[in-house]
């Protein structure tokens, strides 16, 4: 697609909107439809689109393999970490061990202004969805890299399309 200027220009124009929409779906998920899963795939699709049009190496410069690999695990750590945080917070305040429940967001309540700093259920859902979003985004990107970066199996059919484009860029 390297020789199609319209596709290249249009891609550059719409990618910011795709990313913005993904962030909207992610962080507005507790008020409107959406959430971490949906936002993750939309965010990943923006990077995959970039990879399709500008070639795999260009996409790997935007989202390096080493970073995305680690983000796969980070998302899960954020989610489980929220769970452990809700267990540890009441214990640190001198509560009983029986009240320390995994993923009980009520313990995240605080006395700050809730307009500015979300607390309790809101903060818990926010953190958990963030973890889901990170994991889903990076898994989708990594699977795309793994698929698009492979050499053709059949020698007759020549190199893969994506491979050829990336070689030219």
């Amino acid at each position: 697609m390297i020789s199609f200027p319209i596709i290249r220009v249009i891609t550059k124009i719409i990618i910011p909107y795709i990313l913005l929409f993904a962030l909207y779906v992610q962080f507005h998920g507790d008020f409107g439809p959406g959430g971490g899963f949906q936002a993750g795939v939309i965010f990943a699709s923006a990077i995959i689109l970039y990879g399709l049009v500008y070639g795999l190496p260009a996409a790997k410069r935007v989202a390096p393999v080493k970073v995305v690999e680690k983000l796969i695990a980070l998302g899960l750590v954020v989610y489980a970490g929220t769970g452990f945080l809700t267990m540890l917070l009441p214990l640190s305040k001198g509560g009983e061990a029986a009240q320390a429940n995994f993923l009980n967001y009520e313990t995240l309540n605080h006395s700050l202004n809730h307009e500015w700093v979300p607390g309790g259920q809101h903060l818990g859902i926010f953190l958990v969805e963030l973890g889901v979003g990170i994991t889903v985004t990076s898994v989708m990107i990594m699977i795309f890299y793994a698929f698009a970066g492979r050499e053709p199996v059949d020698a007759k059919s020549g190199k893969s399309k994506i491979r050829r484009e990336s070689a030219k860029s």
Partner: peptide, 28 residues
């Protein structure tokens, strides 16, 4: 949920938060 209107998100992330942790682990 202290005023969060989306029931789907409330069930997914709070009431059934433990299940969603499992789902995320499955994707991982």
């Amino acid at each position: 949920m202290h005023g969060l209107p989306n029931v789907v998100t409330a069930v997914l992330a709070s009431y059934r938060g433990y299940d969603t942790l499992g789902e995320t682990a499955v994707i991982f």
